[in-house]
Nucleic acid binder design. Structure first.
Ligand SMILES: [Zn+2]
Ligand SMILES: [Zn+2]
Ligand SMILES: [Zn+2]
Ligand SMILES: [Zn+2]
Lengths: 140, 140
DNA sequence: CAAGGCTTGGCAATGATTTTCATATCAAAT
DNA sequence: ATTTGATATGAAAATCATTGCCAAGCCTTG
């Protein structure tokens, strides 16, 4: 199974479309799907192909300017990487209620791993999922 | 977006197919895709529909007898939940080389979060990805 | 045996993401 | 300004894991 990914490597050309995608992404507070961004941009009168949105997002992720997670349906959600540090959550599998976590501990742990391993550009995904008290109380 | 999942809840009927799936899953050392399990079982002369494999796996996950993760392609990988504790890895984004991590720290952290939050049946996903020394050295 | 309810499995449908490919754009070189 | 080779775009088609559908089979109860 050869890794078949061909992503443009920085520096790329500065195209209006890519700037638009970056802008649209940065304009969103949390994570957004490519589809949503595409729709948003279209609504703003900015016609950009869905393929291009995907390509731009992939490039942004590759360049470390965006984070990406998967929701329960396997859909990828993107978020612009600003200065503000990221956050991890404990989400309820049933109602979707999300509890923000104090993640200093894992952050330092992840940093240490990154340092000791010699790996470059290490990113991490930490997701906790359970059933909230409310949902475990009332069945259905 | 209504969660549209209809998964048989334990206890279900004990069908040969479900036992086969469980067996096949337990027989594998690490994580396996539904497709692979299906192929494996077929190779062993056990004819089980792919849909059934998916249903059985979903039920096993629901019942806490299996863990599930997503690989980089969004494919779901399943693993039987035995007594042995699970493992986390730091994988290379380019060559796929995986480094097993000492995860005691996060395990206890996750356990504490689970306890303090009051959430039930808390599972966690911890994935680190970077570029290994080898790959960052020789650029393609 | 009959009725009703789970289960199964092949196949179609879904839907996100990728690939294709013809075209457009860019930037450097002539 | 024109040429040229590389790169970017986007519409449509392809990919592919996963799910929906549904007729047929199996099990249990009466
Ligand atoms: Zn809940
Ligand atoms: Zn973190
Ligand atoms: Zn590598
Ligand atoms: Zn763990």
């Amino acid at each position: 199974m050869p890794r078949t990914r061909r992503i443009p490597v920085p520096p790329w050309r500065d195209t209006p479309q890519r700037l638009q995608v970056l802008r649209a992404l940065a304009a969103r507070p949390g994570f957004s799907s490519a589809k949503l961004l595409h729709a948003r941009m279209a609504a703003d009168g900015c016609e950009v192909g869905l393929s291009t949105v995907y390509r731009a997002l992939a490039a942004l992720v590759e360049a470390g300017q965006a984070d990406v997670v998967r929701d329960d349906n396997g859909e990828r959600l993107f978020r612009h990487r600003g200065e503000e540090q990221h956050q991890h959550y404990l989400v309820c599998r049933h109602c979707g209620f999300a509890l923000a976590l104090d993640t200093d501990e894992i952050e330092t742990w992840a940093d240490r791993i990154a340092r000791e391993s010699g790996f470059a550009d290490v990113r991490h995904t930490v997701e906790l999922a359970g059933v909230c008290t409310e949902c475990s109380a009332g069945p259905l």
